[in-house]
Design a protein around this nucleic acid. Sequence first.
DNA 1: TTTACATTTGCAACAATGTCGCAATTATAT
DNA 2: ATATAATTGCGACATTGTTGCAAATGTAAA
Lengths: 130, 130
Amino acid sequence: MKAKELLDNYNLYITEGRVNILDIFLKSNVGLSEKDIQDRLSKKSDRATIYRTLKVFKETGIVHPVSAEGSATKYVLKKEPQEHLHFKCTKCRNISCLADIQISGYELPQGYKKIESNFLIIGICNECNN
Amino acid sequence: MKAKELLDNYNLYITEGRVNILDIFLKSNVGLSEKDIQDRLSKKSDRATIYRTLKVFKETGIVHPVSAEGSATKYVLKKEPQEHLHFKCTKCRNISCLADIQISGYELPQGYKKIESNFLIIGICNECNN
DNA sequence: TTTACATTTGCAACAATGTCGCAATTATAT
DNA sequence: ATATAATTGCGACATTGTTGCAAATGTAAA
């Protein structure tokens, strides 16, 4: 039910495709690209549709993009609005949210205005580290 | 002379193309993509060559990539090894280094190991802000 | 400075990703 | 149940990433 509610909250048409994709996000704890989603969809859908769904989700703020060097843009469900870290593992290549880690104490130079941020740490994640 | 010295220091073949590209980086204070470089090259060169040059520069550590949502990967000369911010302006679309701003005071969860980081702030830069 | 060898370049191709118009299909509000 | 608004699937094409290979160029050694 969660997915439908969410779509409704964001005033989006509730379609089978969107529900399925949102369900995948709700179950995943790593960032997903268009292809990642296609792979996890039991009922395949069109590339352009996934692309546009992701675009809509991004524009409404359901997810946010985490651009990662070396692969297609990944998206994660937007959690708290606070600034937090994303972690990309060089072994398993997953990108995840380190939502509990916050960044603080920096100030932009005169004249700069922040709209949003994207902090990415690249390294070995706890699961691959051993 | 700077460019040749640099290439030499990194033990790379000193070719006209590499010197020209490195010169462009040395003169630029914003991140550059393959296309950005092509545009600034007085003597055009092959896309694949620029691509591979960028790859070599990245591998040797002369530059580092700053992946930016919505455009091709941009590269900036690698400065100090310290962690610092990159700023992407939504108006002029330039990406630049805020080398004097450092990030500190965060700790990764147990088991995570950092290799490198990529901190990007998106907003309006000082030149577009008025 | 010429030769022999190592590397890089340009070209051609192709894969992956991003993007859009349009007609057919599906959701919503009435 | 219908009219209307929005989404989907398809086809196409643009951009970016990537590689093999032969020709051209850089380097080191003679």
